[in-house]
Simulated assay, not measured.
Amino acid sequence: MQDNNRRPIAVRSSKWAKRIAAALADSTITPNQISCISVLFALAGSAALLVWPGRLGMLLCAASILLRLLCNLFDGMVAVEGGRGTVTGPLYNELPDRLADSLFLVALGYAVGMPWLGWLCALLAALTAYIRTLGGALGQEQDFRGPMAKPHRMWLMGIALVVAAVAMPWQQQILIGTGAIIAIGSALTCITRTRAIAARLHVQRT
C-alpha cells in the first residue's frame, strides 16, 4: 500500500490512533486479518439490524459500523507505519471493504422494506470503488473524492441509525432518506471521479 494510494484520514495522525496501531503492530495480528475482521463486524451489524429492527438493532448496527471503520483505519496503519505490509495487502485492502459495504447497505434496504434501495446503494458503492481503482490501473493516483466516498457513506448511515433509534416514530422516513442520499451521492461520486480521470487522461495526451 503506497502513500499516494491511501485514503487521506486526519485521525491517522492522532496520538490515540498511533498508540493503538503501534500496539497492534507489536502483536501477532496481521493487517490482512484486521481487514477481514471488518467483514465480521459488518455481518454482525447487518444481522442485528434485521433480527432486531427496533432501537437495539439500530444501535448495534451503528456500533458495528464504527468498529468496521476503525478496522479500516488500523489495517493501513499497521501495514504502513508499523512496517507489516505484505504483497497481498492491496487485495485485502479492497475486497473486505466491498463486502462490508454491501452487507450494511443491503441490510438497510431490507430493514426499511425496500430491498431494491439497499441493492442500488451497494451497487453504486462498489462502482465508486471500481472507478477509483480503474484510475489507478491507468497509472493515476487513486481518487478518493466524494461527495459520497466510503467514509461518508458509513458515517452517514451510522449517524442516521442513532438518530432513528432516538426518534423512533420517524425511523422509517429517516432510514429511507438516508438510503436515498447514499444512492444519489454515490452516483454523483461516480460522475465526479470519472470526469477527473478523463481530464487527467486528456492532460497526459497533450
Score class of each variant (00 low, 15 high):
G177T: 03
F41Q: 01
R98V: 13
L120E: 04
L69N: 09
V106M: 06
V106A: 05
M157Q: 11
A183P: 01
S102E: 03
P90F: 11
L73P: 07
A111E: 00
C61A: 10
L108R: 02
P151H: 12
R153M: 02
A196N: 11
R12H: 14
L134S: 08
A107E: 02
G45I: 02
K18H: 11
L138R: 14
R7A: 12
A165L: 07
V80K: 13
A149W: 00
L91E: 07
A165Q: 01
F104M: 04
Q173K: 09
S38V: 04
R84I: 11
A196Q: 12
A167S: 11
W155M: 14
A10G: 08
T128R: 01
R68D: 06
M114T: 12
I176V: 15
M148T: 05
S46A: 10
N4A: 12
A21T: 09
N93L: 09
I184P: 03
A63K: 00
G54M: 05
P31C: 09
P96G: 05
G179V: 09
G179D: 04
V112P: 05
Q171D: 06
V203F: 12
I34A: 04
Q171S: 10
C36W: 14
G179M: 03
S186V: 06
I159W: 02
A160I: 04
S102N: 09
A183R: 04
V80C: 13
A149G: 07
I37T: 10
Y130T: 08
A79Q: 05
A62F: 07
V11M: 07
I182L: 03
G113W: 10
L66Q: 11
C61R: 00
A180R: 04
A129S: 13
A183V: 08
I174F: 00
S35M: 12
G113Q: 09
T86C: 01
L67G: 00
L56R: 01
A10K: 02
A137K: 08
I184L: 14
R193L: 14
F104G: 03
M157P: 01
A126H: 05
V39G: 06
Q33T: 13
E141R: 15
D101W: 00
G135M: 09
V203G: 10
A22F: 13
